[in-house]
Deep mutational scan, measured.
Amino acid sequence: VSVELPAPSSWKKLFYPNKVGSVKKTEVVFVAPTGEEISNRKQLEQYLKSHPGNPAIAEFDWTTSG
C-alpha cells in the first residue's frame, strides 16, 4: 500500500509506510515521467544527469511529510 505525496512537476512521490512488526524501514520512491522508480539520491542524481529538463535535485524532498 502506498500513499502519493506532493512531488515536483510531472513526477510522483510514493510513500510506503512500514507494516507493524516489519524490519523494512519506511520508504519514499519518486516515479519519473518515464515511469522509472527512483529510490535513493544517487539514482536520482544519475537520472537527472541523463535526462535534462527535469526539476533541480533540490526540489526533491525525501521526507514523508510531503
Results as ranks from 00 to 15, higher is better:
Val1Ser: 11
Val1Ile: 13
Val1Gln: 11
Val1Met: 12
Val1Cys: 15
Val1Thr: 11
Val1Trp: 08
Ser2Trp: 13
Ser2Thr: 11
Ser2Asn: 08
Ser2Ile: 15
Ser2Val: 15
Val3Lys: 08
Val3Leu: 09
Val3Asn: 07
Val3Tyr: 10
Val3Ala: 06
Val3Thr: 07
Glu4Ser: 11
Glu4Arg: 08
Glu4Gln: 09
Glu4Trp: 08
Glu4Thr: 08
Leu5Thr: 04
Leu5Lys: 06
Leu5Met: 13
Leu5Glu: 05
Leu5His: 06
Leu5Trp: 07
Leu5Ser: 05
Pro6Lys: 08
Pro6Ile: 07
Pro6Ala: 08
Pro6Trp: 10
Ala7Leu: 04
Ala7Lys: 04
Ala7His: 04
Ala7Val: 05
Pro8Asn: 05
Pro8Arg: 03
Ser9Gly: 15
Ser9Cys: 15
Ser9Met: 10
Ser9Gln: 14
Ser9Leu: 10
Ser10Leu: 13
Ser10Arg: 15
Ser10Pro: 15
Ser10Trp: 10
Trp11Asp: 06
Trp11Tyr: 01
Trp11Gln: 04
Trp11Arg: 04
Trp11Glu: 05
Trp11Met: 03
Trp11His: 04
Lys12Arg: 14
Lys12Asn: 05
Lys12Phe: 05
Lys12Gly: 06
Lys12Ile: 10
Lys13Asn: 02
Lys13Val: 05
Lys13Gly: 03
Lys13Arg: 04
Lys13Met: 02
Leu14Gln: 04
Leu14Pro: 01
Leu14Lys: 07
Leu14Ala: 03
Leu14Met: 09
Phe15Pro: 02
Phe15Leu: 12
Phe15Arg: 03
Tyr16Met: 07
Tyr16Thr: 07
Tyr16Ser: 05
Tyr16Cys: 08
Tyr16Gln: 06
Tyr16Ala: 06
Pro17Val: 14
Pro17Gly: 07
Pro17Gln: 11
Pro17Ala: 10
Asn18Ile: 10
Asn18Leu: 10
Asn18Phe: 11
Asn18Glu: 09
Asn18Cys: 14
Asn18Ser: 13
Asn18Asp: 10
Lys19Phe: 13
Lys19Met: 13
Lys19Gln: 13
Lys19Cys: 14
Val20Gly: 11
Val20Cys: 13
Val20His: 12
Val20Leu: 11
Val20Arg: 09
Gly21Met: 06
Gly21Leu: 07
Gly21Asp: 11
Gly21Phe: 03
Gly21Ala: 08
Gly21Tyr: 02
Gly21Gln: 07
Ser22Pro: 09
Ser22His: 10
Ser22Met: 10
Val23Gln: 14
Val23Trp: 08
Val23Asn: 14
Val23Asp: 15
Val23Gly: 15
Val23Met: 14
Lys24Arg: 14
Lys24Gly: 15
Lys24Glu: 14
Lys24Cys: 15
Lys24Thr: 14
Lys24Gln: 14
Lys24Leu: 14
Lys25Trp: 13
Lys25Ile: 10
Lys25Phe: 12
Thr26Met: 13
Thr26Cys: 15
Thr26Pro: 15
Thr26Asn: 14
Thr26Tyr: 15
Thr26His: 14
Glu27Val: 15
Glu27Thr: 14
Glu27Ala: 15
Glu27Tyr: 15
Val28Asp: 01
Val28Leu: 08
Val28His: 01
Val29Pro: 00
Val29Trp: 07
Val29Ile: 13
Phe30Ile: 01
Phe30Pro: 00
Phe30Val: 01
Phe30Thr: 00
Phe30Lys: 00
Phe30Arg: 01
Val31Ser: 02
Ala32Ile: 00
Ala32Trp: 01
Ala32Gln: 00
Ala32Cys: 02
Pro33Cys: 02
Pro33Asn: 02
Pro33Met: 02
Pro33Ser: 03
Pro33Ala: 02
Thr34Ile: 00
Thr34Gln: 02
Thr34His: 02
Thr34Ser: 07
Thr34Glu: 03
Glu36Ser: 03
Glu36Lys: 04
Glu36Tyr: 03
Glu37His: 15
Glu37Pro: 08
Glu37Ser: 10
Glu37Gly: 06
Glu37Asp: 05
Glu37Gln: 13
Ile38Asp: 00
Ile38Met: 05
Ile38His: 01
Ile38Asn: 00
Ile38Val: 06
Ile38Gly: 00
Ile38Phe: 07
Ile38Lys: 00
Ile38Glu: 00
Ser39Gln: 10
Ser39Cys: 13
Ser39Phe: 14
Ser39Ile: 13
Asn40Leu: 03
Asn40Glu: 07
Asn40Arg: 04
Asn40Val: 03
Arg41Asp: 09
Arg41His: 14
Arg41Phe: 13
Arg41Gly: 09
Lys42Phe: 14
Lys42Leu: 12
Lys42Val: 12
Lys42Met: 14
Lys42Gly: 10
Lys42Ala: 13
Lys42Glu: 15
Gln43Leu: 07
Gln43Cys: 06
Gln43Met: 10
Gln43Ser: 08
Gln43Trp: 05
Gln43Glu: 14
Leu44Asp: 00
Leu44Arg: 00
Leu44Trp: 01
Leu44Lys: 00
Leu44His: 00
Leu44Asn: 00
Leu44Val: 01
Glu45Asn: 08
Glu45His: 09
Glu45Phe: 09
Glu45Pro: 00
Glu45Ala: 12
Gln46Arg: 11
Gln46Trp: 09
Gln46Asn: 10
Gln46Met: 11
Tyr47Ile: 01
Tyr47Met: 00
Leu48Pro: 00
Leu48Tyr: 02
Leu48Ser: 00
Leu48Thr: 00
Leu48Phe: 02
Lys49His: 10
Lys49Leu: 12
Lys49Ala: 13
Lys49Glu: 12
Lys49Asp: 13
Lys49Met: 12
Ser50Val: 09
Ser50Thr: 14
Ser50Gly: 08
His51Glu: 02
His51Leu: 02
His51Ala: 03
His51Asp: 01
His51Trp: 04
Pro52Gly: 05
Pro52Met: 04
Pro52Val: 05
Pro52Asp: 06
Gly53Pro: 03
Gly53Cys: 06
Gly53Thr: 04
Gly53Val: 05
Gly53Ile: 04
Gly53Glu: 07
Gly53Gln: 05
Asn54Met: 09
Asn54Pro: 07
Asn54Trp: 04
Asn54Val: 04
Pro55Phe: 04
Pro55Asp: 02
Ala56His: 12
Ala56Gln: 10
Ala56Lys: 09
Ile57Ala: 09
Ile57Glu: 08
Ile57Met: 11
Ile57Gly: 05
Ile57Lys: 05
Ile57Cys: 05
Ala58Cys: 11
Ala58Val: 10
Ala58Glu: 15
Ala58Phe: 10
Glu59Gln: 07
Glu59Val: 05
Glu59Lys: 05
Glu59Met: 08
Glu59Phe: 06
Glu59Gly: 03
Phe60Cys: 02
Phe60Tyr: 03
Phe60Ala: 01
Phe60Gly: 01
Phe60Asn: 01
Phe60Lys: 02
Phe60Arg: 01
Asp61Ser: 07
Asp61Glu: 07
Asp61Lys: 06
Asp61Leu: 05
Trp62Glu: 01
Trp62Thr: 02
Trp62Ile: 02
Trp62Asn: 01
Trp62His: 01
Thr63Ala: 12
Thr63Met: 06
Thr63Tyr: 07
Thr64Gly: 09
Thr64Glu: 07
Thr64His: 11
Ser65Val: 11
Ser65Ile: 10
Ser65Tyr: 10
Ser65Glu: 12
Ser65Ala: 12
Ser65Trp: 08
Gly66Ser: 12
Gly66Arg: 10
Gly66Phe: 09
Gly66Met: 11
Gly66Ala: 12
